[in-house]
Amino acid sequence: MTALLEIDGLGKSFGGLRAIDRLSFVVHEREILGLIGPNGAGKSTLFNLINGVFAPDQGSVRFGGVDITGAPPHRIAKYGIARAHQIVQPLEAMTVLENCTVGACFGSRNLSRRQAEAAAYEAATFVGLDDRLAIPAAHLNIAGKKRLELARALAAQARLLLLDEVLAGLNPTEVEYMIGVIRRIRERGIAILMIEHLMQAIMSLSNRVIVLNSGQKLAEGLPAEVANDPQVIEAYLGDPELARQLHGGS
Protein backbone atom coordinates (compact mmCIF):
# COMPACT_ATOMS: atom_id res chain seq x y z
CA MET A 1 0.00 0.00 0.00
CA THR A 2 1.19 3.50 -0.78
CA ALA A 3 1.98 5.84 2.06
CA LEU A 4 -0.39 8.80 2.31
CA LEU A 5 0.66 10.47 5.56
CA GLU A 6 4.30 10.17 6.68
CA ILE A 7 5.25 11.28 10.16
CA ASP A 8 9.02 11.35 10.62
CA GLY A 9 10.87 12.10 13.87
CA LEU A 10 8.15 14.38 15.15
CA GLY A 11 8.85 16.20 18.43
CA LYS A 12 7.09 18.88 20.46
CA SER A 13 7.71 20.34 23.90
CA PHE A 14 5.51 22.63 25.93
CA GLY A 15 7.74 24.36 28.43
CA GLY A 16 9.48 21.53 30.20
CA LEU A 17 6.98 18.92 29.11
CA ARG A 18 7.97 16.68 26.20
CA ALA A 19 4.56 16.03 24.66
CA ILE A 20 5.65 14.21 21.50
CA ASP A 21 9.05 12.57 21.17
CA ARG A 22 10.77 11.15 18.08
CA LEU A 23 7.51 9.87 16.66
CA SER A 24 7.53 8.21 13.27
CA PHE A 25 4.80 6.26 11.51
CA VAL A 26 2.87 6.04 8.26
CA VAL A 27 -0.79 6.03 7.32
CA HIS A 28 -1.41 4.24 4.03
CA GLU A 29 -4.10 5.01 1.51
CA ARG A 30 -7.38 3.28 2.15
CA GLU A 31 -6.39 2.10 5.61
CA ILE A 32 -7.81 2.77 9.04
CA LEU A 33 -4.99 3.30 11.50
CA GLY A 34 -6.13 3.17 15.10
CA LEU A 35 -4.34 5.37 17.61
CA ILE A 36 -4.61 4.34 21.24
CA GLY A 37 -2.83 5.06 24.48
CA PRO A 38 -3.47 6.08 28.07
CA ASN A 39 -4.84 9.53 28.85
CA GLY A 40 -2.22 12.21 28.39
CA ALA A 41 -0.22 10.10 25.95
CA GLY A 42 -0.25 12.92 23.42
CA LYS A 43 -2.85 11.66 20.95
CA SER A 44 -4.77 14.89 20.52
CA THR A 45 -1.49 16.82 20.50
CA LEU A 46 -0.38 14.66 17.61
CA PHE A 47 -3.54 15.63 15.72
CA ASN A 48 -2.83 19.29 16.47
CA LEU A 49 0.64 18.87 14.98
CA ILE A 50 -0.70 17.21 11.89
CA ASN A 51 -3.42 19.73 11.11
CA GLY A 52 -1.39 22.83 11.85
CA VAL A 53 -2.77 24.04 15.16
CA PHE A 54 0.80 23.81 16.49
CA ALA A 55 4.05 23.59 14.58
CA PRO A 56 6.38 20.77 15.65
CA ASP A 57 9.78 21.50 17.14
CA GLN A 58 11.43 18.64 15.30
CA GLY A 59 10.54 16.30 12.51
CA SER A 60 8.32 16.48 9.49
CA VAL A 61 4.85 15.71 8.24
CA ARG A 62 4.43 14.72 4.61
CA PHE A 63 1.11 14.21 2.88
CA GLY A 64 0.86 12.69 -0.57
CA GLY A 65 4.57 13.33 -0.94
CA VAL A 66 4.27 17.04 -0.10
CA ASP A 67 5.91 18.51 2.99
CA ILE A 68 3.14 20.11 5.01
CA THR A 69 5.05 20.55 8.27
CA GLY A 70 3.85 23.61 10.16
CA ALA A 71 1.32 24.70 7.53
CA PRO A 72 -1.62 26.62 9.06
CA PRO A 73 -4.93 24.78 9.55
CA HIS A 74 -6.76 26.27 6.60
CA ARG A 75 -3.97 25.22 4.25
CA ILE A 76 -4.00 21.71 5.68
CA ALA A 77 -7.68 21.52 4.79
CA LYS A 78 -6.83 22.45 1.22
CA TYR A 79 -4.26 19.67 1.06
CA GLY A 80 -7.04 17.23 1.85
CA ILE A 81 -6.88 16.50 5.55
CA ALA A 82 -10.05 16.96 7.58
CA ARG A 83 -10.63 16.59 11.30
CA ALA A 84 -13.50 15.63 13.56
CA HIS A 85 -12.83 16.99 17.02
CA GLN A 86 -13.04 15.25 20.35
CA ILE A 87 -15.02 18.14 21.78
CA VAL A 88 -17.49 18.81 19.04
CA GLN A 89 -17.24 22.19 17.37
CA PRO A 90 -20.48 22.78 15.53
CA LEU A 91 -21.13 26.18 13.98
CA GLU A 92 -24.05 26.54 16.32
CA ALA A 93 -26.38 29.07 14.74
CA MET A 94 -25.90 27.67 11.27
CA THR A 95 -28.02 24.79 10.00
CA VAL A 96 -26.73 21.28 9.43
CA LEU A 97 -26.65 21.91 5.71
CA GLU A 98 -24.79 25.19 6.17
CA ASN A 99 -22.25 23.52 8.42
CA CYS A 100 -21.55 20.90 5.80
CA THR A 101 -21.49 23.54 3.09
CA VAL A 102 -18.68 25.30 4.91
CA GLY A 103 -16.74 22.07 4.90
CA ALA A 104 -17.43 21.52 1.23
CA CYS A 105 -16.68 25.12 0.18
CA PHE A 106 -13.36 25.44 1.89
CA GLY A 107 -12.10 21.91 1.78
CA SER A 108 -9.76 20.37 -0.71
CA ARG A 109 -11.87 21.33 -3.71
CA ASN A 110 -12.46 24.94 -4.49
CA LEU A 111 -16.20 24.74 -4.96
CA SER A 112 -18.66 27.55 -5.43
CA ARG A 113 -21.35 27.89 -2.81
CA ARG A 114 -23.98 26.24 -4.99
CA GLN A 115 -21.76 23.29 -5.85
CA ALA A 116 -20.75 23.04 -2.20
CA GLU A 117 -24.39 22.84 -1.15
CA ALA A 118 -24.84 19.79 -3.36
CA ALA A 119 -21.71 18.15 -1.90
CA ALA A 120 -22.86 19.08 1.59
CA TYR A 121 -26.24 17.50 1.00
CA GLU A 122 -24.52 14.34 -0.11
CA ALA A 123 -22.24 14.25 2.94
CA ALA A 124 -25.11 14.91 5.34
CA THR A 125 -27.09 12.09 3.78
CA PHE A 126 -24.14 9.76 4.08
CA VAL A 127 -24.09 10.12 7.85
CA GLY A 128 -27.87 10.05 8.14
CA LEU A 129 -28.52 13.71 8.85
CA ASP A 130 -30.64 14.31 5.76
CA ASP A 131 -33.76 14.46 7.91
CA ARG A 132 -32.34 17.40 9.86
CA LEU A 133 -30.77 19.59 7.21
CA ALA A 134 -32.54 22.81 8.15
CA ILE A 135 -32.06 22.47 11.89
CA PRO A 136 -29.55 24.77 13.59
CA ALA A 137 -26.58 22.71 14.73
CA ALA A 138 -27.10 23.87 18.31
CA HIS A 139 -30.38 21.93 18.45
CA LEU A 140 -28.84 18.55 17.63
CA ASN A 141 -28.24 16.01 20.38
CA ILE A 142 -24.73 14.77 21.05
CA ALA A 143 -25.08 11.93 18.59
CA GLY A 144 -26.23 14.31 15.91
CA LYS A 145 -23.36 16.67 16.61
CA LYS A 146 -20.88 13.85 16.34
CA ARG A 147 -22.36 12.87 13.02
CA LEU A 148 -22.12 16.50 11.94
CA GLU A 149 -18.39 16.56 12.72
CA LEU A 150 -18.02 13.58 10.47
CA ALA A 151 -20.26 14.97 7.75
CA ARG A 152 -18.33 18.22 7.62
CA ALA A 153 -15.08 16.35 7.26
CA LEU A 154 -16.59 14.23 4.49
CA ALA A 155 -18.05 17.22 2.70
CA ALA A 156 -14.53 18.58 2.42
CA GLN A 157 -13.67 15.73 0.06
CA ALA A 158 -10.66 14.93 2.19
CA ARG A 159 -8.30 12.08 1.44
CA LEU A 160 -7.45 11.61 5.12
CA LEU A 161 -9.78 11.96 8.07
CA LEU A 162 -8.47 12.57 11.57
CA LEU A 163 -11.16 11.21 13.85
CA ASP A 164 -10.76 12.17 17.50
CA GLU A 165 -12.95 9.98 19.73
CA VAL A 166 -16.03 10.26 17.54
CA LEU A 167 -17.67 7.42 19.46
CA ALA A 168 -17.28 8.93 22.93
CA GLY A 169 -20.54 9.65 24.69
CA LEU A 170 -22.71 7.59 22.34
CA ASN A 171 -25.06 4.79 23.34
CA PRO A 172 -24.45 1.29 21.89
CA THR A 173 -26.92 1.73 19.03
CA GLU A 174 -25.32 4.96 18.00
CA VAL A 175 -21.88 3.42 18.28
CA GLU A 176 -22.86 0.65 15.97
CA TYR A 177 -24.28 3.05 13.45
CA MET A 178 -21.15 5.17 13.47
CA ILE A 179 -18.93 2.15 13.06
CA GLY A 180 -20.92 1.34 9.96
CA VAL A 181 -20.44 4.84 8.63
CA ILE A 182 -16.70 4.71 9.24
CA ARG A 183 -16.46 1.43 7.37
CA ARG A 184 -18.33 2.92 4.43
CA ILE A 185 -15.95 5.84 4.46
CA ARG A 186 -13.03 3.49 4.08
CA GLU A 187 -14.86 1.77 1.25
CA ARG A 188 -14.95 5.08 -0.56
CA GLY A 189 -11.16 5.11 -0.50
CA ILE A 190 -10.62 7.64 2.25
CA ALA A 191 -7.86 6.90 4.77
CA ILE A 192 -8.58 7.34 8.46
CA LEU A 193 -6.40 7.96 11.49
CA MET A 194 -8.64 7.50 14.49
CA ILE A 195 -8.16 8.05 18.18
CA GLU A 196 -10.49 5.90 20.21
CA HIS A 197 -10.85 4.55 23.72
CA LEU A 198 -13.55 2.06 22.81
CA MET A 199 -11.31 -0.95 22.33
CA GLN A 200 -13.93 -3.13 20.70
CA ALA A 201 -14.40 -0.50 18.01
CA ILE A 202 -10.71 0.07 17.42
CA MET A 203 -9.98 -3.59 17.22
CA SER A 204 -12.77 -4.32 14.77
CA LEU A 205 -12.27 -1.30 12.56
CA SER A 206 -8.52 -0.81 12.36
CA ASN A 207 -6.26 -2.33 9.77
CA ARG A 208 -3.36 -1.48 12.02
CA VAL A 209 -2.95 0.06 15.46
CA ILE A 210 -0.38 2.39 16.98
CA VAL A 211 0.05 2.78 20.72
CA LEU A 212 1.27 6.06 22.12
CA ASN A 213 2.61 6.47 25.64
CA SER A 214 4.11 9.65 27.07
CA GLY A 215 4.53 11.05 23.58
CA GLN A 216 6.45 8.07 22.23
CA LYS A 217 5.44 5.19 20.06
CA LEU A 218 5.14 2.20 22.28
CA ALA A 219 3.96 -0.38 19.76
CA GLU A 220 2.74 -0.71 16.21
CA GLY A 221 1.13 -3.56 14.34
CA LEU A 222 -2.01 -5.59 13.74
CA PRO A 223 -4.71 -5.16 16.38
CA ALA A 224 -4.25 -8.61 17.86
CA GLU A 225 -0.48 -8.23 18.07
CA VAL A 226 -0.78 -4.94 19.86
CA ALA A 227 -3.39 -6.20 22.28
CA ASN A 228 -1.04 -8.95 23.44
CA ASP A 229 2.12 -6.90 23.58
CA PRO A 230 3.42 -7.00 27.18
CA GLN A 231 4.68 -3.43 27.07
CA VAL A 232 1.27 -2.21 26.03
CA ILE A 233 -0.44 -4.15 28.74
CA GLU A 234 1.96 -2.73 31.29
CA ALA A 235 1.31 0.81 30.12
CA TYR A 236 -2.37 0.30 30.47
CA LEU A 237 -1.98 -1.06 34.00
CA GLY A 238 -1.96 2.51 34.99
CA ASP A 239 -5.46 2.61 33.58
CA PRO A 240 -7.25 -0.55 34.83
CA GLU A 241 -10.46 0.11 32.92
CA LEU A 242 -8.61 0.19 29.66
CA ALA A 243 -6.57 -2.83 30.60
CA ARG A 244 -9.79 -4.73 31.12
CA GLN A 245 -11.05 -3.59 27.77
CA LEU A 246 -7.91 -4.69 26.03
CA HIS A 247 -8.73 -8.23 26.83
CA GLY A 248 -12.24 -8.43 25.64
CA GLY A 249 -14.14 -6.78 28.44
CA SER A 250 -16.01 -3.73 27.48
Binding site: N51, V53, P72, P73, H74, I76, A77, K78, A82, R83, H85, Q89, P90, L91, E92, A93, M94, E98, T101, V102, G103, C105, F106, G107, S108, S112, R113, A116, R152, A156
Partner: peptide
Protein backbone atom coordinates in the same frame (compact mmCIF):
# COMPACT_ATOMS: atom_id res chain seq x y z
CA UNK B 1 -19.07 31.84 -0.30
CA UNK B 2 -17.19 34.73 1.30
CA UNK B 3 -20.14 35.38 3.58
CA UNK B 4 -20.39 31.74 4.52
CA UNK B 5 -16.77 31.86 5.57
CA UNK B 6 -17.36 35.03 7.61
CA UNK B 7 -20.37 33.49 9.32
CA UNK B 8 -18.29 30.42 10.16
CA UNK B 9 -15.62 32.69 11.62
CA UNK B 10 -18.29 34.39 13.67
CA UNK B 11 -19.53 31.10 15.05
CA UNK B 12 -16.19 29.48 15.84
CA UNK B 13 -13.08 30.97 14.33
CA UNK B 14 -10.75 28.09 15.11
CA UNK B 15 -13.14 25.46 13.83
CA UNK B 16 -13.60 27.56 10.71
CA UNK B 17 -9.85 27.58 10.15
CA UNK B 18 -9.69 23.83 10.49
CA UNK B 19 -12.50 23.58 7.96
CA UNK B 20 -10.33 25.50 5.54
CA UNK B 21 -11.64 29.04 5.83
CA UNK B 22 -8.70 31.43 5.26
Amino acid sequence: KFGLGLLAIGQNEDAAAVLGVP
